[in-house]
Every structure is written in C-alpha cells, then in structure tokens.
C-alpha cells in the first residue's frame, strides 16, 4: 500500500484554455521513502506538490494519499519552500508553533498543553542546530538559520509527509551541504516520507532513495532512478565516481527533456 499514489493526473491552470501544467503524471511513494523530483524549470514540479497536498485539484486522474482521495488540503503534510517566510512579528519559537494553532488535532490542545509542545519545538531546534534560538526574532537569524527554523515548523505537527520545494535554492554551497546533513538526519531519525523538489542534482542524489525526472511542460515522469548508495551517507559521497556518474546521467536526461520541448 503506497502512501502517495498519483494516477494518470492532468492539471491545467486557468480554465480550459489555460496552461497545461502536468499531463499523464504517475507517481507512487512508499511510506518512509525519500523521493527527489528534478526536471526543467516550469515543468510542473511545484504543481506536483500542490496536487499531492490538495492545494490544487486535478482535472483528470486521481490523487490518493494515505488511502484517501485528496479532495481538499490534508493536514498530514508539512511544507517548506525556498523562501522561509517566517512571520516577523513572532519569535522563532512562536513561528515554529504556528502549525499547531491550525491543525485540527492540536489547536484544541495547544493552550492547555503548551509546555509539552514547546519541548517538542525545542527538541527540533536542537536537532537542526539552533538550540537556544527560540526567543530570537526571524530577522535576527541568517538565511541558513531561518531555513533551519523553517524545517522545524514543517515538522512540528509530526507530519507523515514532508514536502520540500527547492528549500535550499537561496543558500550558499556550504550552508546547503550542512542542511543536507540536517535533512538526512531528520529523515533517518523518524519514519517521515519526504518529497524534495530541487534543481540541484547532487542534492537529489545525496539525499534521495529515488529520483524522478520530469519532462518539459506538461510534466510527466520520464525516468525513475533508484539511488543505490548505502545509508548512512556522508559528504564524502559527493566525490565518489558512481555518484558523479549518476549526476551526469541525470544532467543529460534533463538537457534532452528540455531540448525535446
């Protein structure tokens, strides 16, 4: 039984004459799996995320998550985007607690069980290397620190499915590699299922169990690579020959997909 099953989905923005974003899209994800999605820009990667989380509805095909057809937003997901968009009037801790004030299961409890939730948030802060930064305001944090806090926010309600849309695109190379390790450890420590959209092929090969390559718009899956490297992985892998071969193959596939359009 797959956690995510996207079956022959077609999705068009802006009415019958609008942009056909994805077509004939099939994606299956097992529980606990880490799937990376790569492809030419504008090919429908973010659309795939929105379909999976119920923010958009397909015109054709079905999206089933955790055994249920997705007809409206589902709260078992946590999301993080390239732009961390912390709310500047809340401290980092209060930003991280925000999802708990929304999700049905928690919003009734947060007032009475605040202490327990704060402990959970502080545990997450420690995991991402931000211990003690809870009372700081977002503008007091660097870009990389904000993105770490953003990950905490995405995880605070213990989602089954973590959706990351180019989360490290705006960061420098070293910060990005640090955050790869953070994500790797978060995934190893829990049984969360992860979908990571990225344009960084090394990032996808370092982190994922499987890499899906999308065609140019309208997006569909044109290749599904199983990433063979043993876990736990460390950054030395980036200099491994097989690793670089995989990255080169991915690169060639995407270049072909772009030219075919």
């Amino acid at each position: 039984m797959h956690l995510v099953n996207i079956d022959d989905v077609e999705m068009r923005y802006g009415g019958p004459e609008g942009t056909l974003a994805v077509s004939g899209l099939n994606v299956k994800m097992d529980r606990g799996e880490f799937v990376a999605v790569v492809g030419p820009s504008g090919c429908g990667k973010s659309t795939l995320m929105k379909l999976t989380t119920g923010l958009q509805r397909p015109q054709k095909g079905a999206v089933v998550v955790a055994g249920q057809e997705v007809t409206k937003p589902i709260s078992i997901v946590g999301m993080a985007f390239q732009n961390p968009i912390m709310l500047p009037w809340r401290t980092t801790l209060d930003n991280i607690l925000l999802p708990l004030e929304i999700v049905e299961k928690h919003r009734r409890r947060i007032r009475t069980h605040r202490k327990e939730y704060i402990e959970r948030a502080e545990h997450l802060l420690e995991l991402v290397g931000l211990k003690g930064f809870g009372p700081k305001y977002p503008w007091q944090l660097s870009g990389g620190m904000q993105q770490r806090a953003n990950l905490c926010r995405a995880l605070i309600h213990e989602p089954e499915l973590l959706m990351l849309d180019e989360p490290f695109g705006a960061l420098d190379a070293f910060t990005r590699e640090e955050l790869w390790c953070v994500i790797r450890d978060l995934h190893a420590e829990s049984d969360v299922t992860v979908m990571l959209v990225t344009h960084d092929l090394r990032e996808s090969a370092f982190l994922a169990d499987r890499i899906l390559v999308l065609s140019a718009r309208p997006g569909r899956v044109i290749a599904d690579h199983r990433v063979p490297f043993e876990r736990p992985r460390n950054l030395d892998l980036l200099f491994d020959n097989d690793f670089n071969h995989l990255v080169q193959d991915l690169h060639a596939e995407i270049a072909r997909a772009r030219d075919a359009a």
Binding site: K50, I74, V77, I85, L87, W89, I102, V103
Partner: peptide
C-alpha cells in the same frame, strides 16, 4: 506571500485562520 497562504491552507486553515494569524497582524 502566496507561500504563507499555501503552507497554512495545506494544514487545513480556514480563511478566518489565515486572516487572524497572518492577515491582520501583517
């Protein structure tokens, strides 16, 4: 930001939630 709205809507936020948590303070 549309992303803020997306994140909250994906968690099941109603329009009123988004208004109170983000819209009004913002």
């Amino acid at each position: 930001e549309p992303e803020t709205e997306d994140i909250l809507r994906a968690l099941g936020a109603k329009k009123m939630d988004i208004m109170i948590k983000v819209g009004i303070p913002r």
